[in-house]
Simulated assay, not measured.
Amino acid sequence: MVSSATPKTRLLLVDDEARLTELLKMELEVEGYEVDVAADGAAGLIQARTEPSPDLIVLDWNLPDFSGVDICQRIRSSSITTPILMLTGHDDVADRVTALDAGVDDYLVKPFSIEELMARLRAMQRRASTFSAATGEGQHPEMLQVGDLVMNTSTRDVSRSGQMIQLSVKEYELLNFLMRGQGKVLERAEIMRGVWGENFYGDDNLLDVYIRYLRQKVESTDRPALIHTVRGVGFILREERQEQTS
């Protein structure tokens, strides 16, 4: 069998279902992953924060002590950017948004096949490498600005007219992508690939949900619109005075 991961790829599996965990650990190790297991959220959080941190995290939504969403939020609050795949029985848009807002990179609805799990993990690794290369220090300016909207990519601070704006992980990544393409019409598929990954399996209605969230946070009645819809194509980030498409 051809391995889909190098032996150095460390994966943390956080799940309290013993039989499933045993099966997944065996399959992942066959594929070349080095697997650590945690049976509850607290243990998973400790292992996620322990150096060296894992390269990937597979996290169940339903845990005996905390929810996977809670654990993901705590991991992200520790400035840990390790890609996280959530295993869940929830499949409606609201739950997917909740997971993505918490900092999850992808989710997989139970029951699932081992082949699909492996494909999701490979896709997350590719996306993490691509996003890191695209936003790495020394390759792009630390400060991005469109009008009075400013993003510091080193601190992940975002402000408009000097007022700080609090963004979720996915809102930040979407705004970052739009700001790097400012003045250019970005197609929906292009945005989805850039923010959610080339092989993201979710509904692209999530893009509309997050565009709405961003507009609510960076625009208001006393501020010119910056995020404009290009009907049938996608979106463009630009100052309103640049008359193009609305």
Rank of each mutant, 00 (worst) to 15 (best):
Y172R: 15
P141W: 03
A48K: 05
D92I: 11
R96W: 09
D148C: 01
Q216E: 13
L175N: 12
K25H: 08
V35F: 02
R160K: 14
S3Q: 10
D60G: 07
F131Y: 14
W196H: 11
S168R: 03
S79L: 12
H90M: 10
R122T: 13
I211V: 08
P54H: 05
E142F: 01
V209N: 10
Y210N: 09
V30K: 07
T82I: 06
C72E: 06
I75T: 03
T88F: 05
V150T: 13
V2M: 10
Y33C: 10
E115R: 14
V104D: 02
P224G: 00
M124D: 01
Y33P: 04
L23V: 11
R241S: 13
R76E: 13
D55N: 15
S78D: 15
D65A: 08
I57S: 00
V97K: 12
F112R: 14
L59P: 00
M124N: 02
M179W: 14
M118S: 09
H90W: 10
I71M: 06
D16P: 05
L121E: 02
W196L: 14
A189L: 07
T21F: 00
L11Y: 03
Q163W: 10
E27D: 03
Q182V: 10
I227A: 00
P54F: 09
L108W: 10
I165Q: 07
T155G: 01
N62L: 13
A42H: 08
Q73Y: 09
N176T: 15
L167I: 11
V233P: 05
Y172I: 15
A18H: 04
D36A: 14
D106R: 06
K217P: 04
L12A: 02
R156N: 06
T130M: 10
I46C: 01
R160V: 02
M179D: 14
R10F: 04
R241D: 12
P7A: 13
E17A: 13
M164D: 14
S53G: 08
E243P: 01
Q166L: 10
S129A: 15
R188F: 00
A42E: 06
M118K: 15
P141N: 12
H140I: 15
E115T: 15
K25A: 07
S3G: 02
D36W: 09
E27I: 04
G89S: 15
M192W: 01
R120N: 01
S246F: 11
P54R: 14
V104T: 07
D70S: 10
S132P: 06
D105M: 05
E243C: 07
I71S: 02
L56Y: 01
A133P: 01
L24S: 02
V93C: 07
V35E: 06
T155S: 10
E198Q: 02
W196K: 10
R193C: 05
Q125Y: 07
I75N: 04
Q139Y: 12
F200A: 01
E51F: 05
R212D: 09
K184V: 15
R241Y: 11
D148F: 06
M1D: 07
R122G: 08
N62G: 04
T153G: 03
E190R: 10
R10E: 13
E137C: 04
D65Y: 04
A133C: 06
D101L: 09
A189P: 00
E198N: 12
T245M: 12
N176E: 15
